[in-house]
């Protein structure tokens, strides 16, 4: 499979990345019940009141990020829209579920139900830009975004020119409180929409090259080392070719996966983290992908992104690795163009 190019990226996150990209960013402090909502954006600039009146947070974030990222790429439209989402439109799902239970199946209205399906964001993007192309939604927990990326790469190897790929998740009001009670980690739960346009051909404004993506469901720590080695080999790269490794460290018990490769593979590589800035959500790794594109373009990042003190003259090739609760792993390989 040929590599593809990233033409533009837009991030809506707990930080003001939508306007400013990754600048000096504040670390999100974890305290009990400290869910952090996405940074407030003036959605009205992008969405008419009639268009937005049924949209929950995730749909708004997704549609606005999508519109802006297509614009940023200098395109009018794309050949395909692919989203990844962990919990989908959880606000509307909760709303309808609560209504079914609380009203004992009576006097229910359709709006929250029709907006609750996992593919609502991709569908609303298609509607808002009148796009009749390929439309797909991946819902595989922590590697939903990477599955979308892989599909995008496949499409660009199948005669498509430009595709939109994004990861989006909203906090919701109900299940997140339950999650919080059972999962112990050092970062807050949050939400966001990180969208990118990918193209088959390099353009003047391309921001990076996407070499490869791999998703896998389960692995033990020893086999992870082998997996990464063979992933790099597939791309004719060695560990020493990787200038920076961007990890989904979140301070939970499963950080041992990251520690394993930090201490055994990437000792002489710049190690970065990002969930201290984005918070944790199933598509937080799409924020990590955004961080990677920022590093390749600006060649620098705020100090609180760096995990170790290894610094490189030139950041050219970057590996992303993420997993959640020891499952739904992903590897993504990027290089500057």
């Amino acid at each position: 499979m040929n590599s593809v190019y990233i033409h533009s990226g837009v991030s809506i996150s707990a930080q003001n990345t939508f306007e400013e990209g990754i600048k000096e960013v504040e670390e999100l402090k974890f305290t009990e019940n400290s869910q952090v909502k996405a940074f407030k954006i003036n959605y009205k600039e992008f969405l008419s009141p009639i268009a937005s009146r049924r949209m929950a947070t995730g749909v708004k974030m997704g549609v606005v990020a999508a519109k802006k990222v297509i614009q940023k790429a200098g395109e009018d439209t794309v050949d395909a829209i692919i989203t990844g989402t962990g919990l989908g439109c959880v606000e509307d799902s909760e709303k309808f579920l609560n209504a079914v239970i609380d009203n004992d199946e009576q006097f229910l209205t359709p709006t929250s139900f029709i907006q609750s399906t996992h593919n609502t964001v991709a569908a609303q993007i298609a509607l808002s830009i009148k796009n009749k192309g390929y439309n797909m939604t991946y819902v595989n927990g922590a590697n939903s975004f990477e599955a979308a990326l892989l599909d995008g790469m496949l499409l660009l190897n199948e005669e498509n020119e430009t595709v939109l790929v994004g990861g989006v998740d909203e906090l919701g009001k109900r299940f997140i409180n339950d999650y919080e009670k059972i999962y112990q980690q050092d970062v807050s739960f949050s939400e966001g929409a990180n969208f990118f346009t990918l193209g088959a051909r390099k353009k003047e404004n391309s921001i990076a090259q996407l070499l490869n993506v791999e998703v896998f469901q389960e692995i033990d720590e020893d086999n992870l080392l082998k997996k990464i080695a063979s992933f790099l080999e597939e791309n004719s790269l060695k560990v020493s070719d990787i200038d920076a490794v961007i990890l989904g460290i979140n301070g939970d018990a499963y950080d041992s996966y990251y520690q394993k490769i930090q201490s055994e593979l990437f000792t002489d590589t710049t190690q970065l983290k990002y969930k201290n800035l984005s918070g944790e959500f199933f598509t937080a790794s799409a924020f990590g992908f955004y961080v990677a594109t920022e590093l390749l373009n600006k060649q620098e990042l705020p100090t609180n992104c760096f995990f170790n003190s290894v610094k490189k003259e030139d950041y050219k090739t970057v590996l992303l690795y993420n997993q959640y609760l020891g499952k739904q792993h992903s590897l993504v390989l990027l290089t500057s163009c």
Binding site: G86, N119, M136, T137, N140, G141, S144, Q328
Partner: peptide
């Protein structure tokens, strides 16, 4: 979480590598 059923079926049939879930 929509991936939960996929994950359980994958474990049941013994697959741990490429697993994903679609919802359209």
């Amino acid at each position: 979480n929509a991936s939960e059923s996929t994950q359980q079926i994958a474990s049941f049939i013994g697959l741990t590598d490429f697993v994903t879930t679609i919802s359209t």
